[in-house]
């Protein structure tokens, strides 16, 4: 037999999950702290994407596959929405997981704030509305392994300090 009942069940749920998870771009992210003058404290996905949406193909060690990720680079996001004196950015997820980035990280590493995967906006059910990836993951590189906890999902708040 080609398919075990276990695989069929999993496939069915993944299919159901894909069908019923309607990802949209209406989600918002809160900005707090040293936000640039004139900027909203609640950003829509369109506002974030408007600063320069780029798309790359990259392997994700969490998803164990390569996907097309689209979003904006963290350095551009900080330069656009934060004050020039910002030296720390703390990202918080819906489950209150927090990760901090420093200028050396966003200047020396390519950190992508992903808003779309394979051309579609991502919902909470698909790790959206924003998730972080650091493209070019190589499991043999210790620095890449160390940065894995920073690949966070479901970001709802960004604090500029």
């Amino acid at each position: 037999m080609l398919h075990s009942p276990k695989l069929v069940t999993t496939g069915f749920f993944l299919f159901l999950f894909a069908v019923v998870s309607v990802a949209d771009d209406s989600a918002q992210v809160r900005l707090v702290g040293e936000v640039a003058q004139g900027m909203d404290y609640r950003l829509s996905i369109q506002q974030i994407e408007s600063i320069g949406l780029i798309e790359i193909e990259s392997y994700s060690p969490y998803d164990k596959r390569a996907d097309r990720f689209a979003g904006v680079w963290l350095d551009q996001l900080v330069a656009h929405f934060g004050k020039p004196e910002v030296t720390r950015v703390t990202m918080r997820t819906i489950d209150d997981y927090e990760v901090e980035f420093t200028p050396s990280e966003w200047k020396n590493s390519r950190i992508l704030m992903v808003t779309r995967v394979n051309g579609k906006h991502i919902s909470f059910a698909t790790k959206g509305p924003i998730r972080i990836i650091i493209p070019g993951y190589d499991p043999r590189e210790k620095a890449h392994q160390v940065s894995l906890p920073k690949w966070i999902w479901m970001i709802t708040r960004m604090e500029f300090r």
């Binding site: 069940t9 749920f13 998870s21 698909t126 999902w153 479901m154």
Partner: peptide, 30 residues
């Protein structure tokens, strides 16, 4: 609703054995 959607995201992340949880819990959340 966002919290519930996010909980689905955790079920369908890389998981050691997703079937038992998906079979019983996902329909309840839905």
């Amino acid at each position: 609703l966002n919290y519930m959607e996010a909980s689905l995201g955790f079920i369908f992340s890389e998981y050691v054995d997703v079937e038992p949880l998906a079979d019983r819990v996902v329909p309840l959340i839905r």
